[in-house]
């Protein structure tokens, strides 16, 4: 699957793994893939998205805080350091797994041969709630049709 990945997309997946581990998640989800993309702030895909890594991380924390508040747990002020890397394998969630073939479809649509960050982003933009990346983008106020348009101007 990954042999078609261009360097930028490979880096995004590696960074997604790191994000999942830092947060204490046991699987790589679509929200981690999105954060993984944001590690390369200068890439055209991220410029089209217009979101920064720190803002996205903070938004995920905010979503967790409100989810915990809904069950009566207040985590304000609790020390929450990054979780040390585990030696266990971190698999993809089924949502994240399904993003990869959709990104390949985007590659074919544009007649390209390599899967780049922009194709990953296009596939992530198509996620619908309750998908975590969709929730995150909604929380960040991402205008998805506008991003898609800016991306297609680039990918042709």
């Amino acid at each position: 699957m990954f042999e078609k990945f261009a360097t930028g997309a490979r880096t995004a997946v590696t960074c997604a793994l790191e994000e999942a581990r830092l947060r204490g998640d046991r699987r790589i989800g679509t929200e981690h893939l999105l954060l993984g993309l944001l590690h390369e702030p200068g890439s055209p895909a991220v410029r089209c998205l217009g979101v920064g890594l720190d803002d996205a991380r903070a938004a995920l924390e905010g979503l967790d805080r409100s989810a915990l508040a809904a069950i009566g747990i207040d985590v304000q002020g609790i020390e929450r350091p990054p979780v040390p890397a585990s030696r266990k394998r971190t698999p993809f969630t089924s949502g994240a797994r399904s993003v990869l073939p959709r990104a390949l479809v985007e590659v074919r649509k544009t007649g390209g041969r390599r899967l780049g960050p922009e194709h990953l982003l296009l596939a992530l933009l198509a996620c619908e709630r309750p998908d975590p990346a969709a929730e995150l983008m909604e929380h960040l106020g991402v205008d998805r049709p506008a991003v898609r348009e800016r991306l297609s101007d680039r990918t042709g």
Partner: peptide, 14 residues
């Protein structure tokens, strides 16, 4: 909330 609890547990444990 359960997902957030898992993450919180990992962070508090660390």
């Amino acid at each position: 909330a359960v997902g957030a609890l898992h993450r919180l547990a990992e962070q508090v444990e660390a």
